[in-house]
């Protein structure tokens, strides 16, 4: 009953959001139309203005002024983008089918096969973005967790490196991007190399790793005294102490950090892709922004929603993984992953 009530509340708020959005887009559309017409009247003539009004009213898409798109238009555009993705995918498949023999021959001769270089669809861009964030987060983890452990274990190391963390933590993604670009473009001079991808994932990783770094060091340095006493009493070696006692005890905090890292990485990724001319959702938004056609605004809105939804999915995914590895949250509601695990275990037991 309570669930139904909550679902009702959510649906209600979604509907009111759509109504407000629709009203706002109508008002802005009218304003854009009147601005266009008065401008033409001023610069050209009354006749030209009248003609423009007629053309806009006829609904010709090429003559519509660019303003906030309505929910319906965004929905339709999303459909168009999906259709387009299907078309592009089909084209790609056809291309590879055609090239099958040639590529096989090239492979036999030890040469590189020919790849499809056509226009990427919206779906391809999304996948590219997911790839970028995967490598970015992987980089963040592989730096932040070891350094965080060291900072938590050794007071001396923490004192000597803390100034660095404090200064570099609040730096904006734009600046990180510029810094990384300076270095990467100097090192990778080969025109065939994918500089944009490398710059993107490194900037994202460096930007997003701080939450994990700080949380890991706090988690490691605040391990319950009684667990440390156990390791002392058993005289565990340093490696066993870290992997059997310290790390498992700090996993809840490490994962809280990782969750923040993933959401920051996703947020930053779009901006960095825009700047680095990399393909991906950020690149898609940039292209549509510079394109400025009548459907651009709607496409940007579609990208916005996709970005938001993927952000939510990533966060939920991290939360489920956290629930799976953490020993703490017995009282919390079970995550989808833990339910699956329990089902698996009970099946095995039966």
């Amino acid at each position: 009953m309570k669930v139904l009530k909550n679902v009702g509340l959510i649906i209600g708020s979604i509907i009111s959001f759509l109504i407000i959005w629709n009203m706002a887009s109508n008002a802005l559309y009218k304003r854009a139309v009147s601005t266009t017409i008065t401008k033409i009247e001023k610069l050209q003539s009354k006749e030209a203005a009248e003609e423009t009004r007629k053309r806009i009213e006829s609904g010709d898409p090429s003559s519509q002024p660019n303003s906030l798109p309505s929910p319906l238009l965004v929905w339709k555009t999303a459909g168009l983008l999906l259709d387009d993705a299907h078309k592009v995918m089909k084209k790609k498949q056809d291309f590879y089918k055609k090239m099958e023999k040639t590529n096989a021959k090239l492979k036999q001769a030890g040469k590189e096969s020919i790849t499809y270089t056509g226009r990427p669809s919206f779906l391809d861009q999304t996948i590219t973005s997911l790839k970028n964030i995967f490598w970015g987060v992987l980089l963040a983890i592989s730096i932040a967790i070891p350094v965080g452990i060291l900072m938590g274990l050794s007071k001396r190391f923490k004192t000597s490196i803390n100034w660095f963390v404090q200064i570099f933590k609040p730096i904006s993604p734009v600046v990180w991007f510029l810094l990384v670009q300076m270095i990467v473009n100097t090192i990778m001079t080969d025109p065939d190399s994918d500089n944009a991808f490398v710059i993107t994932f490194i900037s994202v990783g460096l930007c997003a790793m701080w939450a994990t770094l700080v949380n890991t060091s706090v988690g490691v340095s605040s391990v319950d005294e009684s667990y440390l006493n156990v390791s002392k009493v058993l005289r565990l070696g340093i490696g066993k102490k870290i992997f059997k006692v310290v790390l498992p005890a700090s996993i809840p905090l490490i994962f809280t950090g990782l969750r923040i890292t993933v959401s920051v990485a996703w947020m930053v990724l779009i901006a960095v892709e825009w700047l680095s001319q990399s393909p991906g959702l950020g690149g898609f938004v940039r292209e549509e922004f510079q394109n400025g056609s009548s459907s651009s605004n709607a496409k940007i809105m579609v990208a916005m929603f996709v970005i938001g939804i993927i952000g939510v999915i990533l966060d939920k995914l991290m939360a489920s993984v956290q629930g799976l590895v953490s020993f703490e949250n017995k009282s919390q509601s079970p995550s989808p992953l833990s339910i699956m695990r329990n089902m698996f275990i009970s099946k095995k037991a039966a």
């Binding site: 009684s226 006493n229 156990v230 009493v233 059997k244 498992p248 005890a249 020993f327 703490e328």
Partner: peptide
């Protein structure tokens, strides 16, 4: 061998 008041068991094991 020591037995602590708060058990000191590692909760993840």
């Amino acid at each position: 061998g020591i037995i602590f008041q708060n058990y000191s068991l590692l909760p993840w094991l």
